[in-house]
């Protein structure tokens, strides 16, 4: 193994397996189930938004999820493999033609929406179900 593979091997057992994670891409609207620990109690909060960026690989894989709260844009960056994310659900498949949707930050109103993905979903749906 080379150095990079050795580094990755130290955290490989912490990563979620392919089957645990749904097939998600930039542009998708998702529900992120975030585990919130308050003292000794634990509850789950659902954060819904559009994935506007994905970066990193392995343990460093990050997703940036944007949503609008009280007319104010909110972006949260989640480590995809964090144990604090109990579940990710796909709400809607979006059709994004670029890798980073930072242009959404400047959009207001209807132009903020992303067109639904209509084609090429056959293999995505079959693998995630």
């Amino acid at each position: 193994m080379n150095a990079q593979e050795l580094v990755e091997s130290t955290v490989s057992d912490q990563l979620k397996s392919e089957s645990d994670l749904p097939n998600i891409t930039v542009g998708d609207t998702i529900n992120v189930h975030v585990r919130i620990i308050e003292g000794d109690k634990e509850r789950i909060q659902i954060y819904q938004g559009v994935i506007i960026a994905m970066r990193g690989r392995g343990a460093n894989r990050m997703i940036t999820v944007r949503r609008i709260v009280a007319n104010e844009g909110v972006e949260r960056v989640f480590p995809l493999h964090s144990p604090r994310l109990s579940k990710i659900e796909v709400v809607r498949r979006g059709d994004a033609r670029r890798a980073k949707l930072y242009f959404l930050r400047g959009r207001v109103g209807k132009s903020r929406r992303i067109r639904d993905q209509r084609r090429g979903l056959k293999h995505v749906n079959s693998s995630s179900s």
């Binding site: 050795l6 580094v7 955290v11 392995g58």
Partner: peptide, 18 residues
């Protein structure tokens, strides 16, 4: 060898060097 990210049991992630 390099650095990466490590998740603790409570979900906190820390920077680590290998």
């Amino acid at each position: 060898l390099g650095m990466t990210r490590y998740f603790l049991e409570d979900g906190e992630n820390i920077p680590v060097t290998v």
